[in-house]
Each structure stands twice: as C-alpha cells, then as structure tokens.
Computed example of a mutant assay.
Amino acid sequence: MLIDCHAHLLPRDYPADAPECFPRMEPIDGETARLLVFGAMKFKARDVFFEAERRVEAMDAAGVDAEVLTPMPPLLRYELPAGDYLSLCRWVNEFTAELCASQPGRLYGFGIVPMQDVDAATAELKAIREAGLYGVEISSNIAGKSIGDESFLPFFQEAERLGIPIFVHAMPSPNPRLPMSTMGTFVVGIEGMYAAASLIHGGTAEKCPNLRISFSHAAGGFPLMLPRAQYFWGGTWNEEPPIPEKAVAHTEGPSPMEYARRFYYDSLVFDRRALRFLVDLLGHERLLVGSDFPAMDREDPCGRTLRMLDLPEDVLNDITWNNAFRWLGIDPPK
C-alpha cells in the first residue's frame, strides 16, 4: 500500500456572485483543463485537479492507493480581508469534502482556514471536522509572521484538542530575501526551516505535545540545521549526553532533536541520499510519501526513489502507509 500525503486539488468553479477578491476558473476552448486566475496569477489546471475519476485513474497508473488532498498553496491568501477569505475557505472546503466523499478510502481531504484572524481560524476547526474533512492546511508563514508566534498558539491548541492533523506547506514571505524565481527551489527550503524551527523555539511544540503536524518537502533545510541546534542545546556532538555547562542555550526538558521527532515530514526531497539522511536523523516513523501531484509529475511509479534505499519491509511499510494513518489519527483499512 502507498499513501501520497502531499497532493493538491483546485475547485472547478467559484460562485458567480463571489467577492472581487475570489479566484476564477475560466474555461479553455477545446480542453477539459481550466485557467485559474487569482490576482496576477494565472495557472492552467488539468482536469485531474478537480475531477475525481481522473484522479483515481492517475493514482492507479502511479501505484497510489490513496491521497491526502490539500488545496493548491496559492489559495492560502492571508492578505485578503478576513471575512471574504473565510467565505473562500468555506467554498473550497465544501468542494474538497464533496470530491473526497465520492471516493471514500481513496481521497482524504484537508481544509483551509483564515489564519489572518486567529479566532475565526480556531472556530472554523470544528466545522472542518463536521464537514468530513480530516485535517487543515496552513502556510509556513502567516502574512510574514512566524507560525510559532504565540498569537497562533490557541489555534494549535484547539487542533490538538480536536485531534485534527495539520499540513504546513512552504510559501514565500511577503518580503522574500531571494528572487521570486527561486520560489519553487530555495524559498521552499528556507520557509520550511523557519516554520518548523519556530514551533520549537517559540514554545508551541512544548505546549502542544500531541499535535500531529507535517511539513512539506521535509521542512526544507530544517533537518540539516538540527544537529547545530542540538549542539547549542547540549554542548556535544552526535547527540551524545548533554553537558549543560558547555552548552550555549541549554534548557530543561526535551532537546531540539526530540521535539523535531514529534513532527512528520514528507519525503519530497528528490534524492535517495537526502532520503537516507532523513531516515537516519529523524527516524522512519516520521516520514510520509509526498509528490505534489498534479502540480508536479509523480515518479513512475510513485515512491521509486524511496524503494532504492532497500529498507526493511516493516520500515518501508511505515513510510509508505502506516505513518500516514498515524498522522491522520485513523485506523488503516483492513
């Protein structure tokens, strides 16, 4: 079995009387694809983005048994007026719920919420669950503010209380330090690292020990920086027992590495050596398969690079499907 935990959708349409800030999906003559127009953004969306039958056909062709579906990241628009964006979230969430309900056991949908209004986002979590959605997707920063900022703590606490998993998708900050041409490459790595590190050093990981949260693209550069954070915390190399008097930033309680091993990470890192590093550093129990499909083409078959590692069967099963159900908080199908 293989569960793709990083796959995306787009609604086929939006209301004709929607606020001006809503996106549009325009027909393309002679094609089943549609054109997403959202402000200055234009994106040609194949029908697999919004047609359940096309998705299942693509999954079968790639050897994928189920997908965790999240809205395309450009729909995470926290700069919009909170009220209008809440309406957009509810429209997208309703579409997601209907799409996934048409293929139970194969499509597990996540919703979106207006993180620019923390109270509204927190209140919307209950509606996410009632709609039959399994989790919620958020951006790696909220209009430039770190997700580890204490102002977002009530949101994460409520998600933990309700048992709702979170998927953090890396997105550029409003004031990026690199050209936008690098958004799909280096910015993903930087923003993922900031997001994961902020949850540890901002205190959210300590205050929400049972939060089930996953990061796109293995949180970018975060895993490679963890050993340095561990050294500053413990004063030793290679996770040897800490020597507090040698440490720069020693605190009582879990180490940065221990906190990091509470998170989940998708495997979309494009290289078997990077995957091996993640398995060795974070543990196979924390890795999920991801593809970014259909925004990107999957490997053929999905998980091909992962299988190059010649992992023991039980380890491979954890990464390809067991961990997905642990993250979702549901029992796997028999």
Results as ranks from 00 to 15, higher is better:
residue 88 L to E: 08
residue 289 V to E: 07
residue 282 L to Y: 00
residue 99 L to N: 13
residue 58 A to M: 06
residue 230 Q to H: 03
residue 162 L to D: 02
residue 201 H to T: 10
residue 32 T to A: 12
residue 23 P to N: 06
residue 92 V to F: 06
residue 1 M to V: 15
residue 253 G to T: 01
residue 303 G to C: 02
residue 24 R to T: 09
residue 286 R to K: 14
residue 127 A to N: 14
residue 241 P to Y: 02
residue 110 F to R: 08
residue 167 F to D: 08
residue 120 A to T: 12
residue 264 Y to N: 02
residue 162 L to R: 03
residue 7 A to T: 13
residue 2 L to R: 13
residue 182 T to D: 14
residue 40 A to C: 13
residue 145 K to M: 11
residue 147 I to A: 01
residue 72 M to E: 14
residue 233 W to D: 08
residue 199 L to F: 04
residue 298 R to V: 05
residue 61 A to S: 12
residue 224 L to Q: 14
residue 256 P to C: 00
residue 77 R to D: 10
residue 302 C to G: 01
residue 180 M to R: 13
residue 198 S to T: 02
residue 146 S to G: 07
residue 66 A to L: 04
residue 132 G to K: 01
residue 19 P to L: 03
residue 308 M to S: 12
residue 239 E to S: 14
residue 168 V to Y: 04
residue 57 E to L: 07
residue 113 V to G: 05
residue 131 A to Q: 13
residue 115 M to Q: 06
residue 115 M to H: 04
residue 185 T to I: 13
residue 311 L to I: 00
residue 248 V to K: 15
residue 238 N to E: 12
residue 288 L to V: 04
residue 288 L to S: 00
residue 101 A to V: 07
residue 276 R to H: 13
residue 305 T to N: 15
residue 285 E to W: 04
residue 302 C to Q: 00
residue 89 C to W: 00
residue 180 M to L: 11
residue 194 Y to F: 14
residue 323 N to H: 01
residue 278 L to A: 07
residue 316 L to G: 01
residue 319 I to R: 08
residue 216 S to E: 05
residue 259 Y to N: 06
residue 108 Y to H: 11
residue 294 P to E: 01
residue 241 P to N: 00
residue 162 L to Y: 01
residue 220 G to M: 05
residue 275 L to I: 03
residue 17 D to S: 08
residue 98 E to D: 15
residue 209 P to C: 02
residue 83 G to E: 12
residue 135 G to Q: 06
residue 325 F to E: 06
residue 97 A to K: 12
residue 326 R to C: 11
residue 100 C to S: 03
residue 9 L to R: 14
residue 141 N to W: 01
residue 305 T to G: 14
residue 62 A to R: 06
residue 149 D to S: 04
residue 60 D to C: 05
residue 98 E to H: 15
residue 324 A to P: 07
residue 42 K to I: 07
residue 127 A to Q: 14
residue 252 E to V: 09
residue 234 G to Q: 01
residue 88 L to A: 08
residue 160 E to H: 07
residue 331 D to P: 06
residue 204 T to M: 11
residue 316 L to Q: 03
residue 95 F to L: 10
residue 235 G to C: 10
residue 52 A to N: 09
residue 27 P to E: 04
residue 78 Y to N: 02
residue 208 C to T: 14
residue 270 F to M: 04
residue 225 M to T: 09
residue 57 E to N: 05
residue 231 Y to L: 06
residue 188 V to C: 08
residue 329 G to H: 02
residue 303 G to Q: 02
residue 63 G to Y: 03
residue 172 P to V: 03
residue 3 I to Y: 10
residue 249 A to F: 11
residue 250 H to L: 01
residue 302 C to D: 00
residue 23 P to V: 05
residue 44 K to Q: 15
residue 246 K to S: 13
